[in-house]
């Protein structure tokens, strides 16, 4: 009896985890099947027939219906262009807040804090109005603008810079190095980990972003992948081109899935650090 109880205690959690996993895996597999197996066969035939009728037709169709290559390029420009700018702004601001003394420091710190409290998505209405006044609608700078100042990134870098020993900084300063040189040659080389953590969070977040790009982009030359996919979805629903939709979904998510498969560990810790994304 006691042996049974112990077995039960050991087996149940594994079974429960497997059940959880199944709920998470099945939708993904169903999507894969939908993309590679013609819809009629997926519904009417047995899995054996499915394997024989694997094809890439849906991908060719999806690729033709929507300009995914262009969308990829747009997403790349938006996501990595923004990241490059953010790395500059958060390093500079984080450095000033961590290592410099100046009047109004507390007040400025509080201004950054406000951004942590108010997510950008809540401010779509006034930010759209600002963008319209600046004539930045349907531009890359418009896509990036609300995220160029990043409180999350600034605080992350501030924290990292604070841990760099004072002696390193003083040695460089007494050699006559400017603050910018100190930041570049002394601080940034030893804070690669937080820079990478921020990069992972920023890239994932903006690769996936939907609402803001939906509102402000209107041309194929600016529109990112997510909005392109949503447009395809809207048209698929009417025409029920499920295989195209599934193929489109796979086209959009593949880079992200590959990214987390490669950096699973860093991904986990980065996202934990982000708290409020």
């Amino acid at each position: 009896m006691k042996g049974n109880a112990r077995n039960w205690r050991e087996v149940l959690p594994v079974v429960a985890l497997a059940a959880f996993g199944l709920i998470w895996i099945v939708p993904m597999i169903w999507t894969l099947l939908a993309a590679f197996v013609p819809t009629t066969e997926l519904l009417n035939d047995s899995p054996l027939v499915w394997l024989q009728s694997l094809h890439l037709g849906a991908f060719e169709d999806a690729w033709q219906v929507a300009p995914f290559l262009r969308y990829y390029l747009n997403t790349f420009i938006f996501v990595f262009g923004l990241l490059a700018i953010q790395l500059v702004t958060i390093s500079l601001a984080g450095f000033a807040l961590a290592r410099m003394d100046f009047r109004g420091k507390d007040q400025i710190f509080f201004l950054f804090l406000t951004q942590l409290m108010v997510p950008a998505s809540i401010l779509i209405l006034p930010n759209y109005q600002t963008l319209a006044k600046l004539r930045w609608l349907d531009t890359y700078q418009g896509l990036m603008a609300p995220y160029i100042a990043s409180a999350f990134g600034t605080f992350l870098m501030r924290q990292a810079f604070k841990q760099v020993p004072k002696e390193l900084e003083e040695a460089a300063r007494s050699d006559g190095a400017s603050w910018l040189q100190v930041l570049w040659h002394v601080f940034l080389p030893v804070t690669r980990a937080p820079l990478l953590a921020f990069s992972i969070v920023s890239v994932t977040y903006h690769w996936n972003e939907f609402l803001w790009p939906l509102l402000i982009t209107s041309s194929v030359e600016i529109r990112p992948l997510t909005v392109g996919l949503a447009l395809l979805t809207a048209s698929s629903e009417i025409g029920a081109q499920w295989d195209q939709l599934a193929a489109g979904t796979i086209i959009v998510v593949t880079p992200i899935v590959v990214l987390i498969a490669v950096v699973q560990k860093q991904f986990t810790s980065s996202f934990m650090g982000s708290g409020i994304k």
Partner: peptide, 29 residues
């Protein structure tokens, strides 16, 4: 002493965008 002025320069890019796309929209809405 120097860090004061430099600090504002370092903070400027962030503060401009913070002001226009986080603080102003709160006031304006």
């Amino acid at each position: 002493q120097n860090s004061g002025a430099v600090a504002y320069v370092f903070l400027l890019p962030s503060l401009v965008f913070l002001a226009v796309f986080t603080l102003w929209p709160i006031v304006s809405v």
